[in-house]
Nucleic acid binder design. Structure first.
Lengths: 332, 332
DNA sequence: CTGAAAGCGCTTACAG
DNA sequence: CTGAAAGCGCTTACAG
């Protein structure tokens, strides 16, 4: 049996702020100031401290930090009313977000929305998930002077989005390059910015290629594998003519593929399918658009920190990437 | 706009261990001993302290606690190799578990399994998820002397399970009472204790009623809504004769219902369907078997704490409950 | 069985 | 610009 590090074995103690101070020849207060980006440290001193931090591979003790901060900063994740919570994407998003927040020493909590769509609780800062048109949370938070970041996009607020529009465009351009012309767009009916943007990207790609969109090719896949299956199966049975499917989520793509195969069509030989998300366990065999969820949450936390310290408002778009795997091929 | 408590408004400071000590007329050390269930506190003193804790609604500061503990106790959640992680049930389980663990001051991490099914890392204590036959993790952890609790059941180890067997029995007895005799069992093929137990419960109910199980009625729903849909749809198209479905998860039940409806059958008028889990967002309209996930995780953490402090090994079964809603009715 | 005190690793007024 | 020191809320030897 391979020897593994056991927790009972003597762990070498982690370096503390004391060790860093000694190494850099300064006081712990100064190290703390550098750590927290406080103004008023001579550039030269700052550099010495930073070198020591790197040299010792110092990582602040979160518990000590939180205890010293007296009042821990509470960050709430506000989930839009009616938005689904138990989805693979949300699960992943939540895990990354909690990781980032914890690493920064924040206290995290989920806050639900009431019947009017407003958060039922206010925290020191908020992350808004499930952006949609006329989101009432934005005005509400502005009014209450709570710094927040929207996972989505809006006017004059802090936001971060994966480039849904570009992802939609890339997916469809890929299919266009393979010779496909009649491309189903499989999505859902919910008022949801991300899915709207993906569809707009789809339309833009068609438009650039001089192809008229066909309204019948827009299918309601209910954002789920089951919904994707039923929508595609019904379309097929109704005689809809298409050679490719762009599913706006990996789950719907999985459903689409199952429906095609159940009706004797081969993927990608007869029909090509592109997904969106590149989720582990789900989209691993799909040609799909990869979203960098970890990066999205990291940016969200950065923006939130800027909001908390009163920095100017800005926003960021996280690129997405086409991953070509085995579910797309040249049109026959 | 309704006034809400703002984080910027002056919060009344939380009571500390000092406040409790003063109120109870003891030292903070004594309060700490009571808090941590240390031996050697007079019963009377303990009672006074507990009264003060309740009276002040005292809740220990986690950060201070962790800092004082020097070495935080790390608890790992070991997920069986090949077990699905991005499912609604697992998401819920994980969230409750993390909550419990945090409340107890533990440091939590997920640990994956390697190709041989062994955890890739050892922590001070472990929770084993995804129990199956011949689980190699059990022997491995025993050998390394790591206290652990299995979410499942085994011989001579600490474990907690929802009463899967009884849930299966209750579901089928409910259908039997409604006059159903030909009951599909919709499950999956994976080597998974929970699903095996649910099926055994199903068989027991049949047996008690003197009904012979029919092997054709055991369907592979792949543990998913899509799998449930396809299995049931195919069975129907193949002319399988049944008047009820017991799906071993709410997701498969949802799929089954969709398939039935797509083929013109009405639920519960023509066919009754029972699910399992009672998941929010998913099983809310189903007649189903409710699992108390919060309770399961709470017991798991209790057992783990007992293991950490060398208490005798024991196990616990958490009851499940039949929830009758609108998807079951008398056989026509 | 219980208390007084030191200490965990940080941050932050307060001096200088 | 920087240091010395107090303090955050706990736990735990050490006395008694």
């Amino acid at each position: 049996m391979m020897a593994r590090p056991l927790s009972s074995s003597p762990q070498k103690p982690r370096p503390t702020i004391q060790d860093v101070a000694k190494e850099a020849g300064v006081s712990t207060g100064t190290v703390s100031r550098v750590l927290n980006n406080r103004a008023g440290v001579k550039a030269q001193t700052r550099a010495r401290v930073q070198a020591a931090i790197i040299h010792l591979n110092y990582q602040p003790d979160l518990a000590a930090r939180e205890l010293s901060f007296r009042q821990p900063t509470r960050i709430g994740l506000s989930i839009a009313a009616g938005s689904r919570r138990l989805t693979p994407f949300f699960t992943l998003f939540l895990e990354y977000l909690m990781g980032e927040l914890q690493a920064e020493g924040f206290r995290f909590e989920e806050v639900q929305s009431d019947s009017q769509g407003l958060p039922t609780e206010l925290t020191d800062g908020m992350v808004l998930f499930g952006a949609h048109d006329d989101d009432p949370r934005i005005h509400y938070l502005q009014e209450h002077n709570i710094p927040f970041v929207l996972v989505g996009h809006g006017e004059g607020i802090r936001w971060v989005v994966p480039d849904d529009y570009d992802g939609g465009r890339q997916a469809v351009e890929h299919l266009l390059r393979l010779g496909h012309r009649d491309i189903v767009h499989l999505s859902g009916l919910m008022n949801n910015q991300a899915f709207q943007d993906r569809y707009q990207g789809h339309l833009a790609a068609l438009n650039n290629a001089g192809i008229k969109p066909h309204p019948e090719l827009l299918l309601d896949g209910d954002f789920s594998s089951l919904g994707g299956y039923r929508a595609v199966r019904k379309a097929l049975e109704d005689g809809l003519n298409f050679s490719a499917v762009f599913a706006a989520s990996d789950e719907m793509a999985i459903g689409a593929i199952a429906a095609l195969e159940d009706l004797g069509l081969r993927v990608p030989l007869d029909i090509s399918v592109v997904g969106f998300d590149d989720l582990p366990e789900i989209g691993e065999t799909l040609t799909t658009i990869r979203q960098d969820i970890e990066q999205i949450t990291a940016v969200a936390v950065d923006l939130l920190k800027e909001g908390l310290s009163g920095k100017p408002i800005r926003h960021e778009t996280v690129p997405v990437q086409l991953i070509v795997r085995g579910t797309t091929a040249k049109r026959r």
